[in-house]
Amino acid sequence: MSTRSKTAVLLASAGVLAAGWQIGTAQGQTTALSTDTATTTTETTTATPTATPTTTTPTTTAPTTTATAETTPTTSASASTSGGATGTFTGATASNRFGTVTVTVTLKAGSITDVSAKATIYEQKSARYVNMALPTLKSEVIAADSADVSNVSGATYTTSSYLTSLQSALDKAGR
């Protein structure tokens, strides 16, 4: 197994584990739920290794405790001139007692450009927690529209720090 393939497998395993943990509380009926792509991108950015381009077939077996992910090319997987494979590889769907997880890895010239996990959980009730099991990007958080804001919530300010607080400004403005 090449370094690149190992890396892909490692990352896929990490994805499976992360997604597996993400659905860690579900039981009951099946509810489809896609994990947040941008969130996954965050994970990828942190974990993206410098892949060494080599020419091997991108078929690997993931040695993971959570799932056996047989990565097979589902789209145009090809070895480029630089030696690295390009394409999107989707692992076998793994299931555990919480639901199922399918991990997809995208390679470009041997480098991992994206990893995404699709999770199916068995219980709707858990969805609210599932959505916050992984960090979200600041850009995905609803922005404050200061024109509408009438009050400010923050860690308790002291009487003196109130004077420089946003709440003080709103109070002065009579909002």
Binding site: A144, V149, S153, L166
Partner: peptide
């Protein structure tokens, strides 16, 4: 808060912990 039925809901800004002069989000 208490909201009168016909009034606009209360919009509360939440302070950005890394910059307390800015708002992180609102609810």
């Amino acid at each position: 808060t208490r909201s009168a039925g016909d009034a606009a809901p209360w919009v509360i800004g939440i302070v950005d912990p890394s910059d307390r002069d800015a708002l992180l989000t609102q609810c």
